[in-house]
């Protein structure tokens, strides 16, 4: 979903750049307060995983492929604001090292593939923690819905920016982008759930919204009753 230079007009590139810079700037401030010794390497590893997984295009319908975005995964593992930092590292490296995604479109790409999905998933997780039971199945279900939604929202934002730039009519690009990304989002959900389940099995304490350490609690209760 990387927008190259030439797809967006200057106004849209500037506006998305300003919004992305503000969001990531705030993300950096938040990350500065919340990062600790264990999450510093985790941020790097998450960025590396997102970069690697983004290279692995998978086929979807009719001569089209899709690839992982990773905003949802980063948001579940590190929180939404730190996730914006992770995705801006990845997308910036892709633009400057690999000529993937434009330079003037960098802000739009960080917004579409990082900020929007991360904040949407962050909001969804927060809501789920308040109203849904803290269970592994619930967390993974919310992760799946969040990952799919992050791709759809990113695709919608991309379509709106292309239409606002006069590149393609709104009525053409919105259904086209949402149609193909509804399929790609399923891949995103599958990869995100797999990765979150793996971390959940190894280190549930790292994930906000993970079920409490149920076995220990249950054990204590049994001992007290006996």
């Amino acid at each position: 979903m990387h927008i190259p230079d030439g797809f967006l007009d200057n106004d849209v590139a500037l506006a998305t750049g300003v919004i992305a810079a503000a969001a990531v700037g705030y993300g950096v401030r938040r990350a500065g307060r919340t990062l600790d010794e264990r999450t510093v390497p985790l941020l790097g590893v998450t960025a590396a995983f997102v970069f690697a997984a983004q290279m692995l295009n998978f086929p979807v319908a009719g001569g089209t492929s899709g690839h992982f975005l990773g905003a949802a995964l980063a948001a579940v593992l590190l929180g939404p604001w730190t996730a914006t930092v992770v995705l801006s590292v990845v997308v910036t490296a892709q633009a400057f090292m690999f000529a993937d995604g434009g330079i003037t479109a960098l802000g739009a790409n960080i917004l579409n593939m990082g900020v929007i999905g991360a904040l949407a998933v962050g909001g969804l997780m927060l809501a789920a923690r308040r109203i849904l039971p803290r269970r592994r199945s619930v967390l993974l279900g919310v992760t799946a819905v969040g990952a799919w939604s992050a791709v759809m929202l990113g695709a919608l934002a991309t379509a709106l920016q292309l239409a606002a730039s006069g590149t393609v009519p709104l009525g053409t690009v919105v259904p086209a982008m949402l149609g193909v990304h509804a399929l790609i989002g399923i891949g995103e959900a599958a990869i995100t759930v797999t990765a979150v389940a793996a971390v959940l099995a190894a280190r549930p304490d790292l994930i906000a919204g993970a079920p409490p350490a149920a076995p220990a609690v249950r054990h204590t209760a049994i001992v007290q009753e006996a």
Binding site: M1, H2, P4, N57, P59, T64, S65, H67, T172, A176
Partner: peptide, 21 residues
């Protein structure tokens, strides 16, 4: 990995703005 166009590239080709990139 699959080398076919990704979602945005597909839409750009099908709706005729791929050449703008």
């Amino acid at each position: 990995a699959a080398s076919s166009p990704d979602g945005l590239e597909r839409v750009a080709e099908d709706t005729g703005f791929a050449g703008d990139g």
